[in-house]
Design a binder for these strands. Structure first.
Lengths: 189, 189
DNA sequence: AAAATGACCAAAATGTTCATTTAGTCAAAA
DNA sequence: TTTTGACTAAATGAACATTTTGGTCATTTT
């Protein structure tokens, strides 16, 4: 990958996480990256594609971190929790995801909405893979993997994001307990 | 209750469900109700209060229907499912709730957003009561009733509303199965 | 006297105009 | 061949004019 391309991506990522997608101009990105504006368009066909590429690498990063949290010696239940925990901690602490989620909530920029939807879909797909592996190994009973991954994700959103809108936040510990006693019990064989 | 008050409520409810809250004018409501505009303000202090009153009676109606679905001879699991099923069927089929939910999604009218949030909160409170009753009777294990009701409601939203955004809708039957095998197992004693 | 009304008003929403900004292009420079 | 920034067409938004609308209250009706 060329050096300029990397400069551009880094500048854009920084600007997006500082000011948001909409408030970032291509002139600004060019300045921050120390390249002419035209150069950006030799690597990315539009501002939107630039965002998509950045989010794609975030997706890889999250998957990588989630993988790192998994320990083959532990049970499926423990691993799925560790992975989801990493995913949601990332979401909550990473400057760029914070800013982009804010932008969707406050302004609803369509390009950002779409890209964050894709992030969710990819996280569900990731969990789905783990479920399919566990089914193949006989660690859990057979189930609709897509639907189960979807429910796990939604439950995590509910506990991590929605609950806090009207109540005191739950600790990681508490979330893990709830997830285990409510959702995972239904998956045990 | 005076006759005019009823006329006004009926006219407003009809107009809200036909055109939405924002697109309904007080002149229009007055015309439809065959009263002078000033008369409306002898019963309701603002347009917003008119909406609140109408939604309050919808809440009563939903609770009433949910109660009717409950059969003391059945188990807690069966009853909670029957109640939630009624609640969500109402939400999906009642003209006014459909229109108001659309308006929140598409325009985000604050008054409507608030009132629909209250509806959700009240439904959660309703489920919570059922959970507390069941705990008192020893039908289910002890748990945080608020949190459990919240999770039940969120799971129903996920299955009834969110899933359909990207997949084929689930049948009532299927939703009941999932709810039972995933969430309710965690509550059994 | 009490209840009902609709003309009226301030404020909010909406439409319109116009100057500025910005995504994307491309001829020229490096 | 690669990089660039002046350029353009489109989008945005500030400023202003116009219309609509929620709410009031003096007057009318019962």
């Amino acid at each position: 990958m060329s050096d300029k391309r990397k400069q551009i991506i880094e500048a854009a990522a920084k600007s997006f996480s500082l000011f948001g997608y909409k408030a970032t101009t291509m002139d600004q990105v060019a300045k921050m990256a120390n390249v002419g504006k035209g150069t950006i368009y030799t690597f990315f066909k539009s501002k939107e594609e630039l965002l998509e590429d950045i989010v794609s690498s975030i997706i890889s990063e999250i998957k990588h971190e989630a993988d790192a949290a998994i320990d083959q010696r532990l049970s499926f239940n423990e691993n799925v929790q560790r992975a989801l925990q990493r995913i949601f901690t990332f979401r909550k602490e990473h400057e760029l995801t914070i800013k982009l989620l804010q932008e969707v909530r406050d302004i609803g920029t369509p390009a950002v909405r779409d890209v964050m939807k894709r992030l969710d879909r990819e996280m569900i797909a990731y969990v789905r893979e783990k479920i399919e592996e566990a089914m193949a190994k006989g660690e859990i009973r057979l189930c609709d993997a897509e639907l189960t991954a979807f429910l796990m994700f939604k439950m995590y959103i509910a506990l991590h994001v929605d609950w806090e809108k009207e109540h005191e936040p739950l600790s990681q510990q508490k979330i893990a307990e709830l997830f285990d006693s409510y959702l995972l019990k239904g998956l045990s064989r």
